[in-house]
Structures are given as structure tokens and as C-alpha cells.
Design a protein around this nucleic acid. Structure first.
Lengths: 325, 325
DNA sequence: CTGAAAGCGCTTACAG
DNA sequence: CTGAAAGCGCTTACAG
């Protein structure tokens, strides 16, 4: 029976729809006699009644959904953990988390209009008109991207990651440093600030500018880049992330170079596979637990209408030193 | 202005709500004079009118959403591609894809009741009562898991993967074969059939049963397993996937073994990193494009009420031979 | 070609 | 403590 409504429950328990609603919602401020309450509950159970989400949304003017809009870039375990935390934190408020993989040809507006969520959490920046439109529709908007004017950004400062990499290599005595850039254009929001941070660290250390080269996830591409670095006197490479770093390792191997003696390499992310490489990869780890907690706190604060975002966690980036540097 | 309704558009363009609805929905079977149509469109545009999803859902009895329920296991690039394809295919029908990461403490029913999607696509099996409840609510249910009685399953036959691995190793002359199992319990639906397929291939080839060992993504765990395999005379290992295979490679390294001479290793997935390992990893590739297309076709068939699912694509599993075997 | 009216299923002042 | 009624915003027979 695809159509059990509150009116059926009312009839079955001999009360009005009003009372059914009061009982089922536990409406504060009304007291229902124990007998009535039991009869209603029992009838609802027996009939398999579930309130119509559409009707409730229409009446209340809002849903209990939070929509997370993912960007185009590949979703990693980090993001997974973020979403887990968020779902758990929001469940306590009776909210459910829904995810949209920012792909497909439909405009985003189509989506949030169809869902009319309480809040939209963006893992990439929204177009300004888009954001305005959502706000106009009464939807809270939380943007998590690191931007100059976004105090609610959850992500670690990307530039700091590049800095930490270079500082580690400098501490190891390297003076001519290469940078292995990622090619995927979807990652540009991460790639640019990381590279800029690495550059700045070189400048601060009084070193010549680093030698940047694009590296695809193939032996050939990496071997090319390694050849260029060798020609420039590079002795250490900071890579965009662990995957790119592993490619650099493979490229160095084809040239018969030993790591770290001939070429030191440092990645980012601390993937499980980083420790399994030969040599085991030195990398920069991000404090993902704190970031996940912060995201959840920031979203809750937004929902509560707090003007102040919660305090941002300390960066806490750490170099995990292994055999490759 | 968070409350522009069709009544505002009607007033602004001097017509009734009926006409506004007809124009905006392009209702088939009604003809609207060009002047009226233009005035309505213009007014809607100017006022920034967007119909209330809740009201429309209440009236029509259904939404234009399709909910994909992901299982607990880590989402990989394969799943990403699946979702992309699906979103594109469904967009042509005016449907939007929403994803639920099967985590968090809220019961699934909470979710689909709140969304009331046209269809739910499950990437893991649903509990029977859950599935029944969804069907009762008028929601189409598509389960993609490979099950004996599920002709709509999209995933490749997992047992076939294990078979192909072992057959490759046997063709290379190996007679005593090890299997590197994954530990993560969330992957059990994949792990068990793969192992069973590998076992069956051994039996078919008249070989002794394979030597299975759990391998975590750590050098220590892998080294342990390698020691046991060596003690059993194992000369080749089929791994649950590429990550596990890379761990085995690392474990072999700590024992000073050479691959493939002392120990051959074959993975599954053809991750980009597989080609970057030392030695480059032989692996089993899955035909992901066809699978993605099949999933989309199966969902569309379900929505159309077809009793027959579309023809299943050929398996097309292929061994990508590299240096590790 | 266009409009007045009913009704989707719920919640919540308001009255008793 | 409980009920009759209004109204959320839309779509769609029905009538003109």
C-alpha cells in the first residue's frame, strides 16, 4: 500500500490528524494522554505509516538534508573521512548528508532546487551568482575552500604544505631543488598554492628558484623530468603528492639513479603505499582528524546562525621521514 | 526574496497560475498564444522564479532524483566513473543523481524517506525488509551487487578475476601458488569470491590448493606472509588487488628476494601506480567503460519498467603483463 | 486559448 | 487534552 497517510492512522486509532501529528512528532508543549499516545503509536506501526517528506517539506518550508557538493577532482580517503565525520555530527541534529559528485551535465541549481537542503557544503568554490541564488532560496552555504576571505575554510593551508617540503629538503643540505607538478587541471586549486609555497620557502632560504616540471603518472614522463632536473643540478625533488613522488622514483630508477643519494624525493599525503615503495617515501602528513572535526563544527555553527566560525585548528603538518630523503 | 511563487508570476504577467504552469512546463496538449507565453517567461525570469520542489513533489507524487547508496568500502576511481556515466545518462531524462555514503549512524530508511527518489541504486545488497519497504513506497530498486539471483548486477564476476590471475601464473609454469588476502572486512563481498575463483582455478589445473595469507598494507605484515609462502614452496602469489600486491612486493624485498625469479606477483585493478612499481606490476584489468555503460542501461531499463534487463556485457577481463610475473 | 477550484499530505495556530 | 480548519505551492481535470 503505497499510500498510508496520517488520516489513516487517525481513523485507525480513533483520533484526529492533529493528535497523530502531536504524538508522532513529540511536539513540545502539548501533553497527550498515555492511552491515546499508545493507540496512535500502535496504529502507525501496524499500518507502516511514514510521513510524506514532500508534504512535510512544503509545510515546514525546509528539509532535513544537507547537500555536500564535491568538486571534479578524484575523491580520496581524506574526503571520505570528512564526510563520515560530518554525517555523524549532523545525525545528532536529525540531519542527513547527501553527496553530489560535481560531474554530469546538469547545472548545479537543478540539484539544490530539487533537494532544497537546509545547507549546502561546497568542497570547491561556488560561482558567486550560484551562491547568491542559494542564499536567496534560504539555504545556508558553507564553502570549505581555502580562500583569502573565507574564515570557514577547513582545508589545510596548501602553501604551507609546499613550504614544509622544501624546508625539509633544505635541512637535509640540498641547495638546488626541483618541483614535480601534477598535470590534472582539476587539481589546480591545490597545485598552484603548493608550488607557490615551495617557491617562497626557497626564496626565504636564499636559494635559487626551484626547477618545476610537470610529471604524469607514467615512467616515461617522470624519466623526462628527472633528466631535466639532473641537467639543472637538482639534487632533491618535492612532489605535488605521493603518487607523483612515486612516479619520480620510477623515473630516477630508469636513469640508474639511487635515492636519496643521487636524488632525494618527498611527497604529500602519506598514502599507505608510500611506506611500501622502494625506497620508502618520505612525505608530508596532514592532520586529517582535526580537519574533519573542524569541518563538522563549521557546518554546525553555520546552521546555528553563529556569526563567528569556530577556532581553526593548528596546521599540524608533519614530515614523515622515511628512506627517500 | 525567498518566496517567489507561481502566483507572483501570474500576477506580474496578468494571467492565472494555470497558464503559468502550462507555459513553464511546456505541458503537452495545450497551446498558449505566443504573446502570453512570452510575457510569462519574461516575468518568471525577471522575478527569479523557481518552482517549489516540495510542492511539485507533493502534487506529482514523485521527485526527479535517483539515489545511489554506496557501501562502506573505499570509493575508487572505478566507482567515480560509474557515477559519472550514470549521471550523464539520467540527465537526459531530467533526473539528477544523488549519492549516499553508506556511513553514519542514521538508518538508511531515514534517507530515502527524506529524499523520496524515483529510484534507489544500491552498490551493496540491501536488507530484504529495507528493499521491500522502498518498493512499497513506490521507489524502484536496482541492486548492482553480483548475486546468484540478480540478473541486473553490473559488477564483473569476482570469481572470474581470481581465476584469471591463477591461470596466468599457471601458464608461466608455477605449480605452488599463494594468495594474498585483504584484511578489511568491508571488502568481504569481493574478497571471498575472488579467493574462491582462484581456488577453483588451482583445482581445475590439478594443482595443490593455494596457500592463502592475510596481508595488511604494511611491510611487516607482508614480510610475514612472504616467509610463510617461502616455507610452503610458493613461487607465485595472486593478490586481492594492486595495493596488496605492492605490499607483497615490499615484503619480498625485505627478504632479499627477486621478483619474479624468486617470487612472481600479480594484482588486480591496474592502478596507475602499478606500472610505477619496481618491478612493474602485472595485473588484471577490468573493462570499466562497458561496466559503466551497463549500469546506466540497467537503471534506465528499471525506470522504464522493462522486465528484461539489458544484455550483460562480456567479461573482458585482461591480464596486463609487466615485469612482476 | 485561459481561469476557478480541487487536492496532494502535512503541521499548527485557534478554539473548545 | 483534543479537533476542525487553514494553508504551504504546485498541477490538472473541468468548465467556459
Amino acid at each position: 500500500m503505497p499510500g498510508v497517510t496520517s488520516i489513516d492512522v487517525a481513523r485507525a486509532s480513533g483520533v484526529s490528524r492533529t493528535t497523530v501529528s502531536y504524538v508522532l512528532n513529540g511536539t513540545p508543549g502539548v501533553t497527550i494522554s498515555e492511552g491515546t499516545r499508545r493507540r496512535v503509536l500502535e496504529a502507525a506501526e501496524r499500518l507502516g505509516y511514514a510521513p510524506s517528506a514532500a508534504a512535510r517539506a512544503l509545510r515546514r518550508g525546509r528539509t532535513d538534508l544537507v547537500l555536500c557538493v564535491l568538486p571534479n577532482w578524484p575523491i580520496g580517503p581524506l574526503l571520505d573521512l570528512m564526510l563520515d565525520h560530518l554525517a555523524t555530527a549532523l545525525a545528532d541534529r536529525g540531519l542527513s548528508v547527501l553527496v553530489h559528485h560535481g560531474r554530469g551535465p546538469r547545472p548545479l541549481s537543478e540539484l539544490w532546487r530539487a533537494v532544497t537542503p537546509r545547507a549546502v557544503v561546497g568542497f570547491a568554490a561556488f560561482a558567486p551568482e550560484e551562491e547568491r541564488a542559494m542564499r536567496q532560496a534560504g539555504i545556508q552555504v558553507v564553502s570549505t575552500m581555502v580562500e583569502p576571505d573565507n574564515p570557514r575554510a577547513f582545508a589545510a593551508d596548501q602553501a604551507a604544505i609546499g613550504r614544509v617540503q622544501v624546508e625539509h629538503l633544505v635541512a637535509r643540505g640540498h641547495r638546488t631543488i626541483g618541483y614535480a607538478s601534477v598535470v590534472d587541471p582539476r587539481l589546480v586549486d591545490f597545485a598552484l598554492p603548493r608550488l607557490a609555497g615551495a617557491r617562497a620557502a626557497c626564496a626565504d632560504a636564499g636559494l635559487p628558484d626551484l626547477v618545476a616540471a610537470d610529471v604524469e603518472l607514467s615512467v616515461l614522463s617522470a624519466a623526462d623530468a628527472v633528466a631535466r632536473w639532473r641537467a639543472s643540478g637538482v639534487t632533491a625533488v618535492a612532489a605535488y603528492n605521493d603518487e607523483v613522488a612515486l612516479a619520480v622514483l620510477a623515473g630516477a630508477r630508469t636513469h640508474g639513479l639511487r635515492c636519496p643519494d643521487d636524488l632525494a624525493v618527498i611527497g604529500v599525503d602519506d598514502l599507505p603505499l608510500a611506506a611500501l615503495a622502494d625506497p620508502a617515501l618520505t612525505t608530508v602528513g596532514q592532520p586529517i582528524g582535526p580537519q574533519a572535526h573542524y569541518l563538522a563544527a563549521a557546518v554546525l555553527a553555520t546552521l546555528d546562525g553563529d556569526s563567528e566560525p569556530p577556532p581553526h585548528p593548528a596546521e599540524g603538518l608533519g614530515v614523515i621521514v622515511r628512506a627517500s630523503t
